[in-house]
Protein backbone atom coordinates (compact mmCIF):
# COMPACT_ATOMS: atom_id res chain seq x y z
CA UNK A 1 0.00 0.00 0.00
CA UNK A 2 1.34 3.40 -0.90
CA UNK A 3 0.35 6.24 1.36
CA UNK A 4 1.77 9.49 0.14
CA UNK A 5 1.82 12.95 1.59
CA UNK A 6 -0.40 15.05 -0.58
CA UNK A 7 -1.75 18.53 -1.00
CA UNK A 8 -5.24 17.37 -1.89
CA UNK A 9 -8.05 19.62 -0.84
CA UNK A 10 -11.10 17.91 0.55
CA UNK A 11 -14.52 19.15 -0.53
CA UNK A 12 -15.15 20.28 3.04
CA UNK A 13 -12.17 22.60 2.90
CA UNK A 14 -13.21 24.42 -0.23
CA UNK A 15 -14.63 27.78 0.57
CA UNK A 16 -18.23 27.87 -0.56
CA UNK A 17 -19.21 30.39 -3.16
CA UNK A 18 -21.42 32.33 -0.77
CA UNK A 19 -18.64 32.75 1.76
CA UNK A 20 -16.17 33.61 -0.99
CA UNK A 21 -18.41 36.30 -2.40
CA UNK A 22 -19.20 37.79 0.97
CA UNK A 23 -15.48 37.93 1.81
CA UNK A 24 -14.84 39.80 -1.44
CA UNK A 25 -17.67 42.21 -0.71
CA UNK A 26 -16.32 42.73 2.79
CA UNK A 27 -12.81 43.42 1.49
CA UNK A 28 -14.16 45.84 -1.09
CA UNK A 29 -16.09 47.63 1.58
CA UNK A 30 -13.04 47.77 3.86
CA UNK A 31 -10.90 49.10 1.03
CA UNK A 32 -13.53 51.72 0.37
CA UNK A 33 -13.52 52.94 3.92
CA UNK A 34 -9.76 53.28 3.90
CA UNK A 35 -9.54 51.02 6.93
CA UNK A 36 -7.36 48.62 4.98
CA UNK A 37 -4.62 51.19 4.77
CA UNK A 38 -4.99 52.26 8.34
CA UNK A 39 -4.81 48.90 10.06
CA UNK A 40 -3.86 46.11 7.71
CA UNK A 41 -2.58 43.68 10.31
CA UNK A 42 -5.53 44.19 12.61
CA UNK A 43 -7.74 43.27 9.72
CA UNK A 44 -5.59 40.34 8.71
CA UNK A 45 -5.77 39.00 12.22
CA UNK A 46 -9.53 39.45 12.33
CA UNK A 47 -9.95 37.57 9.07
CA UNK A 48 -7.63 34.79 10.16
CA UNK A 49 -9.38 34.22 13.46
CA UNK A 50 -12.92 34.40 12.15
CA UNK A 51 -14.40 30.99 12.93
CA UNK A 52 -15.02 29.06 9.72
CA UNK A 53 -18.63 28.17 9.11
CA UNK A 54 -19.10 24.42 9.62
CA UNK A 55 -18.67 22.84 6.21
CA UNK A 56 -21.07 20.19 4.98
CA UNK A 57 -19.73 16.68 4.40
CA UNK A 58 -20.61 14.08 1.80
CA UNK A 59 -21.84 10.87 3.43
CA UNK A 60 -24.33 8.01 3.24
CA UNK A 61 -26.73 7.33 6.11
CA UNK A 62 -26.38 3.92 7.71
CA UNK A 63 -29.85 3.17 9.09
CA UNK A 64 -28.89 -0.42 9.95
CA UNK A 65 -26.47 0.76 12.65
CA UNK A 66 -28.48 3.82 13.70
CA UNK A 67 -31.01 4.30 16.44
CA UNK A 68 -34.32 5.97 15.63
CA UNK A 69 -34.50 7.68 19.02
CA UNK A 70 -34.94 11.45 19.12
CA UNK A 71 -31.63 13.13 18.36
CA UNK A 72 -30.20 15.78 20.62
CA UNK A 73 -30.06 19.25 19.13
CA UNK A 74 -26.92 20.71 17.59
CA UNK A 75 -26.99 23.22 20.44
CA UNK A 76 -27.00 20.50 23.11
CA UNK A 77 -24.34 18.40 21.42
CA UNK A 78 -21.99 21.34 20.94
CA UNK A 79 -22.40 23.27 24.21
CA UNK A 80 -22.44 20.50 26.82
CA UNK A 81 -19.10 18.74 26.52
CA UNK A 82 -16.52 16.93 28.58
CA UNK A 83 -13.20 17.80 26.96
CA UNK A 84 -10.89 18.61 29.86
CA UNK A 85 -8.14 19.83 27.53
CA UNK A 86 -10.29 22.94 27.11
CA UNK A 87 -11.48 23.19 30.73
CA UNK A 88 -13.48 21.08 33.15
CA UNK A 89 -16.77 23.00 32.96
CA UNK A 90 -19.36 21.69 30.52
CA UNK A 91 -19.42 24.98 28.59
CA UNK A 92 -15.62 25.46 28.65
CA UNK A 93 -14.80 23.38 25.55
CA UNK A 94 -17.15 25.43 23.35
CA UNK A 95 -15.75 28.66 24.80
CA UNK A 96 -12.05 27.77 24.77
CA UNK A 97 -11.67 25.80 21.55
CA UNK A 98 -12.73 28.51 19.11
CA UNK A 99 -9.25 29.18 17.80
CA UNK A 100 -8.11 25.56 17.87
CA UNK A 101 -6.19 24.71 14.67
CA UNK A 102 -7.12 21.37 13.16
CA UNK A 103 -5.09 21.86 9.93
CA UNK A 104 -2.43 20.82 9.23
CA UNK A 105 -2.98 17.69 11.29
CA UNK A 106 -0.86 14.57 11.42
CA UNK A 107 -1.55 11.19 12.92
CA UNK A 108 1.35 8.94 13.90
CA UNK A 109 0.82 5.21 13.41
CA UNK A 110 3.19 3.28 15.65
CA UNK A 111 3.96 -0.04 17.25
CA UNK A 112 3.14 -3.57 16.21
CA UNK A 113 2.08 -3.00 12.61
CA UNK A 114 3.61 -3.49 9.17
CA UNK A 115 2.84 0.04 8.06
CA UNK A 116 3.86 2.77 10.46
CA UNK A 117 4.83 6.41 10.21
CA UNK A 118 3.36 9.87 10.26
CA UNK A 119 0.39 10.52 8.02
CA UNK A 120 -1.50 13.65 7.19
CA UNK A 121 -5.15 13.70 8.12
CA UNK A 122 -5.95 13.73 4.40
CA UNK A 123 -3.96 10.50 3.98
CA UNK A 124 -5.78 8.95 6.89
CA UNK A 125 -9.22 9.85 5.55
CA UNK A 126 -8.87 9.50 1.77
CA UNK A 127 -9.84 5.84 1.18
CA UNK A 128 -12.79 5.84 3.55
CA UNK A 129 -16.32 6.64 2.40
CA UNK A 130 -18.14 8.50 5.15
CA UNK A 131 -21.37 7.30 6.65
CA UNK A 132 -23.81 8.67 9.19
CA UNK A 133 -24.55 6.64 12.29
CA UNK A 134 -26.95 7.78 14.95
CA UNK A 135 -25.60 6.43 18.22
CA UNK A 136 -26.54 6.69 21.86
CA UNK A 137 -23.77 8.24 23.96
CA UNK A 138 -23.77 7.38 27.66
CA UNK A 139 -21.48 9.46 29.86
CA UNK A 140 -20.05 7.89 33.00
CA UNK A 141 -21.68 10.83 34.82
CA UNK A 142 -25.11 9.27 34.22
CA UNK A 143 -26.35 11.51 31.41
CA UNK A 144 -26.82 10.56 27.80
CA UNK A 145 -27.45 11.95 24.34
CA UNK A 146 -28.29 10.69 20.85
CA UNK A 147 -25.84 11.99 18.24
CA UNK A 148 -25.71 11.64 14.44
CA UNK A 149 -22.00 11.08 13.84
CA UNK A 150 -20.29 11.19 10.44
CA UNK A 151 -17.36 8.82 10.18
CA UNK A 152 -16.04 5.44 9.10
CA UNK A 153 -15.32 2.13 10.84
CA UNK A 154 -12.13 2.15 12.90
CA UNK A 155 -11.52 -1.44 11.76
CA UNK A 156 -11.22 -0.32 8.12
CA UNK A 157 -8.46 2.08 9.07
CA UNK A 158 -6.66 -0.48 11.22
CA UNK A 159 -6.60 -3.01 8.38
CA UNK A 160 -4.66 -0.56 6.21
CA UNK A 161 -1.75 -0.61 8.66
CA UNK A 162 -1.66 -4.42 8.97
CA UNK A 163 -1.18 -4.98 12.71
CA UNK A 164 1.20 -7.87 13.39
CA UNK A 165 0.32 -10.99 15.35
CA UNK A 166 1.86 -9.38 18.44
CA UNK A 167 -0.67 -6.55 18.40
CA UNK A 168 -3.39 -7.16 20.98
CA UNK A 169 -4.35 -3.62 21.90
CA UNK A 170 -4.70 -0.23 20.26
CA UNK A 171 -3.66 2.88 22.14
CA UNK A 172 -4.88 6.35 21.16
CA UNK A 173 -3.39 9.68 22.20
CA UNK A 174 -4.83 13.19 22.07
CA UNK A 175 -2.81 16.21 20.97
CA UNK A 176 -0.59 17.71 23.68
CA UNK A 177 -0.49 21.47 23.18
CA UNK A 178 -0.99 23.56 26.32
CA UNK A 179 -0.71 26.69 24.19
CA UNK A 180 -3.90 25.82 22.34
CA UNK A 181 -5.46 23.66 25.03
CA UNK A 182 -5.59 25.75 28.20
CA UNK A 183 -6.88 22.85 30.28
CA UNK A 184 -3.52 21.12 29.82
CA UNK A 185 -1.76 23.87 31.77
CA UNK A 186 -2.97 22.30 35.00
CA UNK A 187 -2.46 18.59 35.79
CA UNK A 188 -6.10 17.61 36.23
CA UNK A 189 -5.07 14.46 34.33
CA UNK A 190 -1.66 13.20 33.28
CA UNK A 191 -1.54 14.87 29.85
CA UNK A 192 -1.71 13.93 27.05
CA UNK A 193 -4.96 12.00 27.27
CA UNK A 194 -4.54 8.33 26.47
CA UNK A 195 -7.21 5.75 25.73
CA UNK A 196 -7.16 2.21 24.50
CA UNK A 197 -9.15 -0.73 23.21
CA UNK A 198 -8.51 -4.40 22.86
CA UNK A 199 -7.79 -5.08 19.17
CA UNK A 200 -10.97 -7.15 18.80
CA UNK A 201 -13.00 -4.30 20.31
CA UNK A 202 -11.34 -1.86 17.92
CA UNK A 203 -12.16 -4.12 14.95
CA UNK A 204 -15.83 -4.32 15.94
CA UNK A 205 -18.02 -2.76 13.23
CA UNK A 206 -19.67 -0.40 15.73
CA UNK A 207 -16.35 1.27 16.65
CA UNK A 208 -16.30 4.47 14.64
CA UNK A 209 -13.78 7.17 13.81
CA UNK A 210 -15.78 10.35 13.50
CA UNK A 211 -14.94 13.48 11.53
CA UNK A 212 -18.32 15.14 11.72
CA UNK A 213 -21.74 15.33 13.27
CA UNK A 214 -25.09 16.49 11.97
CA UNK A 215 -23.63 16.30 8.47
CA UNK A 216 -21.00 18.93 9.22
CA UNK A 217 -17.31 18.91 10.04
CA UNK A 218 -16.78 18.08 13.71
CA UNK A 219 -16.80 21.23 15.86
CA UNK A 220 -13.58 21.67 17.84
CA UNK A 221 -15.30 21.10 21.19
CA UNK A 222 -16.48 17.69 19.99
CA UNK A 223 -12.97 16.44 19.25
CA UNK A 224 -12.02 17.79 15.84
CA UNK A 225 -10.58 16.80 13.52
CA UNK A 226 -10.64 13.08 14.32
CA UNK A 227 -12.18 11.29 17.27
CA UNK A 228 -13.20 7.85 18.37
CA UNK A 229 -16.80 6.83 19.07
CA UNK A 230 -17.35 3.56 20.94
CA UNK A 231 -21.07 3.59 21.67
CA UNK A 232 -21.21 0.65 24.09
CA UNK A 233 -18.64 2.20 26.42
CA UNK A 234 -18.79 5.25 28.67
CA UNK A 235 -18.08 8.47 26.83
CA UNK A 236 -14.57 8.99 28.17
CA UNK A 237 -13.36 6.01 26.10
CA UNK A 238 -14.23 7.94 22.94
CA UNK A 239 -11.00 9.93 22.79
CA UNK A 240 -10.91 13.24 20.93
CA UNK A 241 -8.45 15.06 18.65
CA UNK A 242 -6.34 11.97 18.01
CA UNK A 243 -2.68 12.40 17.00
CA UNK A 244 -1.32 8.91 17.65
CA UNK A 245 -2.54 5.36 17.17
CA UNK A 246 -0.21 2.69 18.53
CA UNK A 247 -0.57 -1.09 18.31
CA UNK A 248 0.72 -2.80 21.44
CA UNK A 249 1.15 -6.24 22.95
CA UNK A 250 0.43 -4.96 26.45
CA UNK A 251 -2.67 -3.26 27.70
CA UNK A 252 -2.31 0.54 27.54
CA UNK A 253 -2.71 2.48 30.76
CA UNK A 254 -5.48 4.93 30.12
CA UNK A 255 -5.67 8.44 31.59
CA UNK A 256 -8.68 7.97 33.84
CA UNK A 257 -7.46 4.59 34.98
CA UNK A 258 -4.20 6.24 35.99
CA UNK A 259 -5.94 9.10 37.77
CA UNK A 260 -8.60 7.14 39.69
CA UNK A 261 -8.18 3.38 39.27
CA UNK A 262 -10.93 2.59 41.77
CA UNK A 263 -13.47 4.54 39.74
CA UNK A 264 -12.51 4.13 36.08
CA UNK A 265 -11.41 0.87 34.53
CA UNK A 266 -9.88 -0.02 31.18
CA UNK A 267 -13.07 -1.57 29.82
CA UNK A 268 -15.60 1.06 30.93
CA UNK A 269 -18.44 -0.82 29.30
CA UNK A 270 -21.80 0.76 30.04
CA UNK A 271 -23.23 -1.48 32.76
CA UNK A 272 -26.23 -0.65 34.96
CA UNK A 273 -25.22 -3.48 37.28
CA UNK A 274 -21.90 -1.97 38.31
CA UNK A 275 -22.17 1.37 40.10
CA UNK A 276 -19.58 4.06 40.03
CA UNK A 277 -18.28 4.23 43.62
CA UNK A 278 -19.87 7.66 43.99
CA UNK A 279 -23.10 7.32 42.08
CA UNK A 280 -25.53 4.78 40.70
CA UNK A 281 -25.26 3.74 37.05
CA UNK A 282 -28.72 2.14 36.98
CA UNK A 283 -30.41 5.08 35.37
CA UNK A 284 -29.46 8.04 33.22
CA UNK A 285 -30.73 11.47 32.36
CA UNK A 286 -31.31 11.88 28.64
CA UNK A 287 -30.33 15.48 27.99
CA UNK A 288 -33.18 17.64 26.74
CA UNK A 289 -35.80 14.95 26.84
CA UNK A 290 -38.91 14.25 28.88
CA UNK A 291 -39.82 16.03 32.09
CA UNK A 292 -37.25 17.82 34.17
CA UNK A 293 -36.95 14.96 36.64
CA UNK A 294 -37.08 12.01 34.23
CA UNK A 295 -34.37 9.39 34.25
CA UNK A 296 -34.50 6.33 32.08
CA UNK A 297 -33.06 2.91 32.81
CA UNK A 298 -29.51 2.44 31.55
CA UNK A 299 -29.18 -0.53 29.21
CA UNK A 300 -26.43 -3.13 29.32
CA UNK A 301 -23.67 -2.11 26.87
CA UNK A 302 -25.76 1.02 26.28
CA UNK A 303 -28.29 -1.02 24.32
CA UNK A 304 -25.68 -2.59 22.01
CA UNK A 305 -25.52 -5.89 23.92
CA UNK A 306 -26.77 -7.96 20.96
CA UNK A 307 -23.81 -6.78 18.89
CA UNK A 308 -21.00 -6.64 21.45
CA UNK A 309 -21.75 -8.94 24.40
CA UNK A 310 -19.92 -11.82 22.66
CA UNK A 311 -16.66 -9.83 22.97
CA UNK A 312 -16.77 -10.34 26.72
CA UNK A 313 -17.60 -14.01 27.14
CA UNK A 314 -16.00 -15.33 30.32
CA UNK A 315 -14.93 -11.89 31.51
CA UNK A 316 -16.06 -10.85 35.00
CA UNK A 317 -17.53 -7.45 34.19
CA UNK A 318 -17.84 -6.41 37.83
CA UNK A 319 -14.08 -6.81 38.29
CA UNK A 320 -13.18 -5.62 34.80
CA UNK A 321 -15.31 -2.51 34.96
Amino acid sequence: MIIRQSQDVRPSEITSEGVYRSRRAFLAWIAGTGLMAAAPDVLARALASAPPAPSPLRYTPNPRLSTTERQNSWEEVTTYNNFYEFGTGKADPADNSRGFRTRPWNVAIEGEAEVTGSFTLEDILRPHPLEERIYRLRCVEAWSMVIPWIGFPLGDLIKRFKPTSRARYVEFTTLLDPQQMPGQRYPVLDWPYVEGLRLDEAMHPLALLAVGLYGKVLPNQNGAPLRLVVPWKYGFKSIKSIVRIRFTADRPRTSWEKALPREYGFYANVNPGVDHPRWSQKRERRIGSGAFWDRQPTQMFNGYADQVASLYGGLDLARNF
Partner: peptide
Protein backbone atom coordinates in the same frame (compact mmCIF):
# COMPACT_ATOMS: atom_id res chain seq x y z
CA UNK B 1 -35.75 36.74 31.20
CA UNK B 2 -33.40 35.00 28.80
CA UNK B 3 -31.69 33.11 31.64
CA UNK B 4 -30.27 29.84 30.35
CA UNK B 5 -29.20 26.96 32.56
CA UNK B 6 -27.53 25.05 29.73
CA UNK B 7 -28.22 21.61 28.33
CA UNK B 8 -28.55 19.94 31.73
CA UNK B 9 -30.60 22.31 33.91
CA UNK B 10 -31.15 19.73 36.67
CA UNK B 11 -27.42 19.38 37.24
Amino acid sequence: GGVSLGANPVE
